[in-house]
Design a protein around this nucleic acid. Structure first.
Lengths: 122, 122
DNA sequence: CGTCGTGCTATTGTTTTAGTAGCAAACTAA
DNA sequence: TTAGTTTGCTACTAAAACAATAGCACGACG
């Protein structure tokens, strides 16, 4: 079961990340989070633990291929783990979420601003 | 010059995002930031304004195709704008960066933990 | 005039993601 | 026991995103 995880590409410090060759921690993190649905999965799991299919439903029916890939990556990154009821965030995952949390409120004002801009200009 | 921006796909509130059909602001944001180098560009611009090529160099020589696409998206999202010296963050972009900033410190501990884990668990 | 740096497009090939189907294992109830 | 569900996940194919490289139009400078 853990053998699969060996194939998951999570960069180590100093190693090349997909695009980034500097290997700075922040870039490794951005590389991981900058994959489709990575942050969405963390966001949804923060609300409550989910089974594979629940998570899939919450993430707008994303394909199981991608969900499984993301889960492997996030588990390899020690942000997500198998829990009682499906999957859940690890302690580190919760810490990360706490830092992302403010984005939730901010995003409302941000999208409002975009809407106003788009409708007012010309 | 602004005509190009019309083709940039940034979801409006309530609209479908690439994968997400819920159209929640936070998912729109995650969709935008969850594209390659989006957060890396914001991170680099927070340090100082950069010309197109400087930014390219800082972002590990990412292809101009992608850089230009990201810049269009981020400008459409009102997070990045043309500044005196190349490109820079908007006021909103700076706010966003302030929220991402804690990730920088945290990521060091996080990658350390991963390294220890990987080397200790056979 | 040449030549330099800038922002950017075009082209081609590779990688990622989407979309769908379906299977093996665990559980449920008859 | 056996049939039906649910769960986690793999296989396959097509579409989209991205990488890599070349190079062009423009303005500044000599």
């Amino acid at each position: 079961m853990n053998n699969d995880d060996k194939n998951v590409k999570i960069a180590k410090v100093g190693q090349k990340v997909r695009g980034s060759k500097t290997g700075q921690p922040i870039m490794i993190l951005f590389d991981l989070l900058g994959r489709r649905w990575a942050m969405g999965i963390i966001w949804n799991l923060s609300a409550q633990n989910c089974t594979f299919r629940e998570l899939q439903a919450r993430c707008d029916s994303l394909s199981p291929t991608v969900l499984n890939t993301r889960l492997k990556e996030l588990r390899a990154a020690n942000l997500v783990e198998k829990a009682e009821h499906g999957y859940g965030l690890t302690a580190e995952g919760i810490k990360l979420f706490k830092m992302l949390e403010p984005l939730g409120d901010w995003s409302y004002g941000w999208t409002d601003m975009l809407t106003v801009e788009n409708s007012s200009k010309k």
